[in-house]
Design a protein around this nucleic acid. Structure first.
Lengths: 148, 148
DNA sequence: CCCAATCTAGTTGTGCACAACTGATCGGTG
DNA sequence: CACCGATCAGTTGTGCACAACTAGATTGGG
């Protein structure tokens, strides 16, 4: 690497830069399908969990309704999902993947493996990195929600 | 942690979430000074390197002029820096920290130590995390600039 | 010298993030 | 039942990120 500033020593800057660099690696794979990276994350949750409430999407992605509402509206416009007000509890809104949205999963295929390789880290190092990030986040994450 | 979705396994999502969580930890320390996190990063470069061109700021932070131009305009409005067109090469613009901007360094103090502790990781783990991020970024980062 | 590529900063447009707020709905308690 | 606090989705406003583009300055080759 080539920087020489104080930024090099900041763990937080490394996170910030690494996160943007990784997202940039996803972009060329997602662009052809008209998806952004956060939209892809939403679709992944839908593929994995099926119909989900906006509340649970927010908890999984750690995003609030201010971010999710317009994002989901765009995905709905593209035909990838359908929103439906809950019948039992009318405050919640259920997000259903459409057939088009479901087909995206096979169309896009498995990116995580290809992109993990793109980092140049070994499997062990990736596991290590994953564990460290997860643990760091566990402590740092509390502000947004505390499980009762 | 509490998630149960496929996101848990994505190294990229862990980066994305950890980065936002860390930034959120900085926010309460920066808000009182009217700084955002990216603005703070710019000021750190200025504190460390003194007057810098926008080009070099972009290289250090890995941000383009589309992001930096308005950001620097806001910092200039706040009186933290001054921009000056280069005399030798009139394409470049030099960014000079003002006295107000320099005073911010002592006013804000050393955040990185306090916030590294907030992650709950040990010193060794932080070093490990730092190294892994730096290495992952080294490979992933190429798109934006290739050193000749 | 001249012109074509390159470099630099800035602008425009789109899409996140997030704070602060609104309005509707729900759940429990008196 | 009526009220009150909590919950949920949505809106508004600000500030990044980044692609695509513009305009001006510079550099190198012929």
């Amino acid at each position: 690497m080539r920087e020489s500033t104080a930024l090099d020593r900041m763990i937080c800057f490394q996170l910030y830069a690494a996160s943007r660099a990784m997202t940039a690696l996803y972009r060329p794979h997602l662009d052809p399908h008209g998806l952004t990276y956060p939209q892809y994350l939403v679709m992944r949750v839908l593929w994995h969990d099926g119909p989900t409430t906006i509340r649970d999407l927010g908890r999984a992605l750690r995003l609030d309704s201010g971010t999710l509402s317009p994002l989901l509206k765009r995905l709905e416009t593209q035909g990838h999902l359908r929103r439906q007000r809950g019948t039992h509890d009318e405050r919640t809104v259920w997000i259903h993947p459409t057939e088009t949205g479901t087909r995206l999963q096979t169309d896009i295929g498995d990116l995580s493996h290809a992109l993990a390789c793109a980092t140049g880290l070994t499997t062990d190092e990736l596991t290590q990195l994953h564990t460290l990030l997860h643990r760091a986040r566990g402590t740092a994450d509390t502000p947004r929600e505390g499980q009762p």
